[in-house]
Design a protein around this nucleic acid. Structure first.
Length: 307
DNA sequence: CCAGGTCAAGGGAGT
DNA sequence: ACTCCCTTGACCTGG
């Protein structure tokens, strides 16, 4: 079992001046991008991928075997191709090192594009942008030399239910089959947190059985949006069954902020920390990504306190 | 130098 | 048709 955290490392910057911070989501506002152009975006992207290498090193030094990479490595990338950046050669080298090191350290790397990525949207322009976004995520992994398989998943939600779940799922299957191969070989689908959206059984019946895409099981989302009469164990088992032989299924783990940290929060809000001392895996072999605010700090604390 | 207002994107719920 | 929310860190401006 591997444990991972998402995008941001908190430990690594303790006591650092702002100018020395290590992080991978440097960005610019629209105005600055329009003024500074590709050159400015390129400089930030280069720093981001150089810092990604530091974080992969830090993970190795701290025994962490999985990491979700930020989707904001390349600011405003919807507006250009990665290879258009003036620093592309240097960026490519840095990414290659990131990939090479992650392999030596046996560190599993993942992506999770944002909720703006909707390949089954009813809007044609949204579909087009979403496909580009996925393609660029896959291209980054390709540049890193990461295999085109589900060891390096790109995880998304369906992100729409218009006009109903069935038609949205059908459009998803259609769009999915048109995706470039380097995307399709990595793309996986996650269950949603709202009852109006897709639970793991919906995804299994409406999407997996049609196109074979693997399903990420999210514990908190299932807690907030279960299928009537079906246990967490069943939902996890169904999700796990969709992953190919030899590839460890990925799950997402958080707990309800309302029930653990702040009564006034929404049930589906994520916690800062992991409160359970032992996550229930029902004996299945899975990898777990922690989706909690305290990131690596929460993960290290969980490992230390594990019963 | 710092605090606080502001920020590209889609979709859904509520009005 | 419209507003607010999701969810949050980082940017940027004005003091």
């Amino acid at each position: 079992m591997r444990y991972g955290y998402c995008c941001i490392n908190l430990s690594i910057n303790e006591g650092k001046k702002d100018s020395e911070r290590i992080y991978t989501n440097r960005s610019l506002t629209k105005k600055t991008f329009l003024e500074g152009g590709l050159k400015k975006a390129s400089e930030l992207a280069l720093k981001n991928v150089q810092d990604l290498e530091h974080i992969i090193e830090w993970n190795r030094d701290n025994g962490i075997m999985m990491f979700r990479m930020s989707s904001d490595l390349f600011p405003w990338c919807s507006e250009y191709e990665l290879s258009d950046l003036p620093d592309f050669e240097e960026i490519k080298k840095a990414l290659m090192w990131c990939g090479a090191k992650s392999k030596i350290y046996k560190q599993r790397l993942t992506f999770h594009p944002s909720h703006f990525c909707v390949i089954s949207s009813l809007r044609e322009d949204v579909v087009k942008n979403s496909i580009k976004e996925l393609r660029q995520h896959a291209e980054i992994m390709d540049l890193m030399g990461l295999e085109q398989n589900f060891n390096y998943p790109i995880n998304i939600h369906i992100n729409t239910t218009k006009p109903d779940k069935e038609s949205a799922a059908a459009r998803f299957c259609e769009a999915y089959s048109q995706l470039p191969e380097n995307v399709r070989k990595r793309l996986v689908l996650e269950n949603d947190d709202k009852p109006s959206e897709f639970n793991p059984f919906d995804l299994y019946e409406l999407v997996h059985q049609k196109v074979g895409i693997p399903l990420t099981f999210d514990y908190l989302h299932y807690f907030c949006n279960p299928r009537d009469g079906h246990s967490e164990k069943e939902a996890l088992q169904v999700s796990i069954s969709t992953w190919p032989e030899g590839i460890t299924p990925i799950t997402h783990y958080s707990e309800s902020r309302k029930l653990n940290e702040d009564e006034s929060s929404k049930l589906l809000a994520h916690t800062d920390w992991i409160w359970s001392r032992n996550i229930e895996t029902y004996g299945f072999e899975i990898d777990i990504e922690f989706e909690v605010k305290m990131k690596d700090l929460a993960l290290l604390k969980y490992l230390k306190n594990q019963a």
